[in-house]
Write a protein that binds this DNA or RNA. Structure first.
Lengths: 204, 204
DNA sequence: CCGGGCATCGACCGATCGGTGGATGCCGGG
DNA sequence: CCCGGCATCCACCGATCGGTCGATGCCCGG
């Protein structure tokens, strides 16, 4: 018997998951939560937690990190709509056992939860692809922390001079960072760099 | 008896909706579809269609428009995660009877479908608020179609000259549009205009 | 120990952008 | 009928940006 905790802010999604796993004999849904805080409260009853990431209040990533401390034996399976870098990596760093997309068929879900319960890592093909790509070429397309800072400031309306002051570096440095950003994103100016970053989920 | 068609690309969400309405006596779920094309096919069996907007292939807005032509008596209720202007307005223009967010409680969903079946318009409070705001001040914050075109080109890396050529207008016109855009978005350059547009859901 | 990524800085230049202050015509609502 | 928004265009200017040469130091991994 695998005891399951369902965490999602949408009642309909919770219903759907409850329906899927309620129909399988050796699963038992022991609770539901609509945000990260409630999830941490209820986790001690469960073997596996199905966790959405985008939720009001305490988000999924933070909830995972807290669970790692309080209940390290509970497996957390991330189940979400997006497969952008910005979501996958923090979730895995925080200690998620697996990462699935919501458009996965029901059987894949059940299989994934079984695997997670055994302690195996589970990744959607789409997610796995992204992860491989970012591991294989840490230089290409992956912005360094500093570059992300610069890009965020530019997206907020900062000129090169503004960003330089903000980061306590010279304007020349900001320009160099931006040129590297253009390279990595395959664009030629700040406006389209910001656009590309949003498309890739690098900016909130 | 209200006959219902469920359209969503996520199996789990479809399960959840099926569960919610299967439990209510006078509802009957007569079909499911995972994209807009399948939805149009199956619509003639239904009184009300519950429609997601973001789907692979034929999206929700286009599906609504097609249904208006082929089956004008079918009520379409949009049920989606996002409440950004870019989603709400096109959907309503296309002929949606109502617009709900997925985080709505089950009872509200049932009430909304009943209302839609009677031909009443239904809007989530959050959606209604946005709509009111955009109707009350059509100048503030709402970009004109031409301005959106310009902004999209800029986000794609176009210089003013590029955009001018693309739109068959002079560079001066593009600059004027951009100045108006800055005004409406409360920013001072193209990069932050693009960022703000993404935050507000004005750009895909 | 050396290559490579990261972060830092400098100088120069042309291209582009943003700001200002205009102008015209069209259209739709009060 | 006139106001206001939309879309179009012009000229001028300084500020900023983007591109291209560089250069240094740090740290990690092979």
């Amino acid at each position: 018997m695998i005891r399951l905790l369902i965490v999602d802010d949408h009642p309909i999604v919770r219903d759907g998951l409850r329906g899927v796993f309620g129909a399988v004999p050796d699963f038992e849904v022991v609770g539901e939560a609509a945000d990260g805080a409630a999830a941490v409260e209820l986790a001690d009853r469960a073997d596996v937690v199905l966790m959405d990431l985008r939720m009001p209040g305490v988000g999924g990533v933070e909830a995972i990190a807290r669970l790692r401390e309080t209940r390290p034996d509970v497996r957390v399976l991330v189940l979400t709509t997006f497969d952008s870098d910005s979501d996958v990596l923090p979730a895995i760093e925080a200690g998620a056992t697996g990462y699935l997309l919501k458009d996965a068929p029901r059987e894949e879900l059940v299989r994934a939860v079984r695997a997670a319960h055994r302690g195996e890592s589970v990744l959607s093909p789409a997610v796995a692809g992204r992860l491989m790509a970012s591991v294989r070429r840490p230089s290409d397309q992956t912005l360094s922390p500093r570059e992300r800072q610069v890009l965020a400031l530019v997206a907020g309306g900062a000129t090169n001079r503004d960003a330089a002051r903000e980061l306590f570096v010279s304007e020349a440095t900001v320009k160099t960072h931006l040129l590297h950003i253009y390279d990595k994103l395959g664009v030629r100016d700040r406006a389209s760099a910001v656009a590309e970053a949003y498309r890739r989920g690098l900016l909130a």
